[in-house]
């Protein structure tokens, strides 16, 4: 079936069956590969995108449920000042290692800072607990969020 998606400020007409995870429409049809496939069961967060500004796991978000939503992916999150601050902090602190989970980490970090501009360590750990990093870059993710908070405050 034909569906209309509002993604990264643009309107896309896509052909997908109901029940298709948003992840695969983004990756395979729109060819935006920054959003990653890690587990397919909403357990790792690598596929995190924003739906109306809220982080969701795109592997468990179905295409028919997002027609009216504003979808933002990692490719466009840096257009926003919070996204830009997080990406700047990630580079300053060299948060990444293999990097495969980091699109999702950045999307979740932006979600956190959007609702809580100065999160405590406990709040960071709680909010980010669904984003797995097999390289264990967690210490720098925590520091990166704190640094982004500083950048935004300045």
């Amino acid at each position: 079936m034909s569906l209309t998606l509002k993604l990264n400020g643009q309107t896309h007409t896509v052909d997908a069956e109901p029940g298709t995870p948003l992840l695969w429409v983004i990756r395979d049809e729109l060819k935006l590969t920054g959003t990653k496939f890690g587990c397919g069961v909403a357990s790792c967060g690598a596929c995190t995108v924003h739906l109306n500004g809220e982080p969701v796991r795109s592997c468990q978000t179905y295409i028919e449920d997002v027609e009216d939503a504003e979808i933002t992916t990692i490719e466009a999150v840096g257009d926003d000042k919070i996204g830009a601050a997080v990406q700047q902090a990630w580079v300053e602190l060299d948060v990444v290692q293999c990097g495969y989970c980091q699109s999702g980490q950045v999307m979740s970090a932006v979600g956190l800072l959007s609702e809580n501009s100065k999160p405590s360590v406990e709040e960071i750990d709680e909010y980010m607990s669904g984003n797995a990093c097999r390289c264990a870059t967690y210490q720098r993710i925590r520091a990166g969020i704190q640094r982004a908070s500083e950048i935004l405050e300045a």
Binding site: T33, W90, V96, G99, Y100, S103
Partner: peptide, 21 residues
Amino acid sequence: VRRKDSAIKGNGQAMYAMDVH
């Protein structure tokens, strides 16, 4: 000295084999 691959891994531009099309 910073990593050469930080920026592309934080903004979705990094190309892994999974991203080959």
